[in-house]
Design a protein around this nucleic acid. Structure first.
Lengths: 207, 207, 207, 207
DNA sequence: TATGAATGAGGTTTCATTCAT
DNA sequence: CATGAATGAAACCTCATTCAT
């Protein structure tokens, strides 16, 4: 109020630190899972006091939700910035979305989303927040699925809601993770096959 | 000691109680997840003292593992008792397995297995036990998948390991649960579509 | 009251079992210490139900106290049955008592008494019971100590109470146990030296 | 962080509290023994929450070990700071050690050490820690015992290991405690007599 | 009388959250 | 703002003791 520039500098620092916290939290969650990630450890790794953590995020849930939301935002932005040629097939568009979700710089995104999605604690928290960004991603995918049906690419007999769910099942590395972590398949190989199964599976029969 | 009937009566009561405990544990796990299921709460809901719980299951892990194993046994037995005509297609055989896994009286089985499978704590416990039953179910499915490939039903270009994983993905109600719990689809409809996607997706292309 | 013979038969069986329980309790206490000896384990080793244990001894403390008392009784009897020649020196008489306390058939007595004497729980229980037998043993030793003083064997300047305590210190295998369990001394060697120190230490100076 | 005085003030308070905890723990252990000393009770008596206790000592064992080690350190330092004239007899040196061990401000030290030494649980914990301080005290005593033998003060026929044990037996107030707590002897009187017995007992006979 | 299933108080330890400095 | 010590609820597990059969 007195010195706006100062205020915004502070604000910038604040955001930078928030970003750092989220990064660290992500790492820890990936290592230890949701429940075994303690606020103590996050604070320690960031190099701040536990109390400071609570200045940024009032609850553990809030922190967790924040980086979930951030990932979603990134995905949404990437999807929206993706150049989409009009004549591109619906399948190609959806494949590009899958590709976005699996190809983050750190390569951790999909695992992270999976962990959060399957953490009981987190689910409960999630239901109480608005899922706006998630909804928008979902809408985008749904739009492509319906476009594909309209174009005759996808089987119109399968309800779009079910298609949507199956799409996100394909995406989530679920047990796929095991395939390249323990059974020696490459990530690319697995994703290629899984997408193949999915898109063939939903294709309109050429009859 | 003297009277066999007496002994077996006690034993019967014991088994009944054990069954009750497992039922309750199942419910709580379904509601709250593995970690948030406390021995206290299970005992309270069963209506017994905490100590009594420990007479039946020496550790939380043991209790959890017990009903996991029990479900697996039921599934394995059902699979093995299923009459399998020699000329039945591999797909039909696999469909019957899916059907078994999804048709338990309570309708909770698949969710439960999914929760346990994705609980970090439980995984660790699981690795220290023999996974015999689980392995045998898995072997059965794998055998059918390879039979299907040999018969020209399934695409031989997709590694069987990946097929196997995808099969269990289809099975696990993961987000499917949402479809009939919140979005108004019937369980049958969802399973029908999901299986359709899967089997079309892995079918050998008619050249 | 109706059938005395029967009654006494029952009574005899009862005592036999009580003896067995005490034997087993002794073994377990020697193996695990006072606190880590559970009523469950005693019952299991005796081959009776836990409830039966409580028909004989209403509290854990009572059981423990019972075999403490029993050992004391044995010691007292052995002491009183010991033929004591009038002209025997006081030192010789005391040495024979030490010998009795250390030479029980099982060779466990001294350790056991030591464990009990140093168990906090037991001490408290002990204080609430009459220590009759213990007192009588103590009186016997005290009498010999005073006899020794009167005869000019022991130093009359050391109060008999202190001598008494030191005597029981010498007896108790305390850390002596370590000497032959971990350091390779023989039990006899240790006892010989320790008694030597004690009796020389309390001897009247020949000046 | 910025102000050293501030840091050291906090540190000082922390140490003071730690000291208080150790004091209280000592009292409780003296009253109830090792096993019956609960973290709850210690916290309650100190007037802090249970969790706070765990900020200072991560395990019950650690707390117990901490004050054991602290006492040992105090004793070792006192021994090493003791001015030792070269011509002093070995007996005089050992007497000064006994005196140190028995003359702590609270007068509880020896009892405490004895309780800990005879607690099964503590022994196990002790074996996993380095016994450095304990060993050094023990070495010092042993050196004096051997010096005494060499000088012709002590009986060379008694193995030094046995002498060492007997020395610590004399020190430990074992049942001595009873003498001045219940029987009206003074501490000094008891210690005087007990040392007299010990040193006479181990003296070389003037032949 | 004998049984052993049932009880529940009590013990240790963890960790999200608060708050005085 | 930042700190981190303090809190206390809650989790798992044990075991002496009771009591219906």
């Amino acid at each position: 109020m007195k010195v706006p520039e100062h205020r915004s500098l502070k604000e910038k620092q604040r955001l930078e630190r928030e970003e750092l916290i989220l990064q660290v939290a992500q790492d820890v969650v990936l290592e230890k899972g949701y429940r075994d990630t303690s606020m103590d450890e996050i604070a320690a790794r960031v190099g701040i006091a536990k109390g400071t953590l609570y200045l940024h995020f009032a609850k553990k849930e809030d922190l967790m939700f924040a980086f979930f939301e951030r990932e979603m935002q990134k995905i949404l932005q990437a999807i929206e910035q993706q150049p989409v040629a009009a004549e591109m097939s619906a399948q190609a568009k959806l494949e590009s979305i899958v590709s976005i979700m699996h190809k983050d710089p750190s390569g951790k995104r999909a695992n992270l989303l999976f962990i959060l999605f399957n953490s009981e604690d987190f689910k409960i928290a999630l239901q109480q927040k608005s899922l706006d960004t998630l909804q928008r991603i979902s809408d985008k995918v749904m739009a492509y699925l319906e476009e594909g049906k309209a174009r005759g690419e996808f089987d119109p007999d399968i309800p779009t809601g079910i298609l949507l769910n199956s799409f996100f099942s394909v995406l989530s590395p679920r047990s796929h993770r095991r395939l390249f972590q323990e059974e020696g398949y490459t990530r690319e190989e697995v994703m290629f096959c899984v997408q193949k199964i999915f898109f063939r599976g939903i294709a309109k029969r050429s009859s």
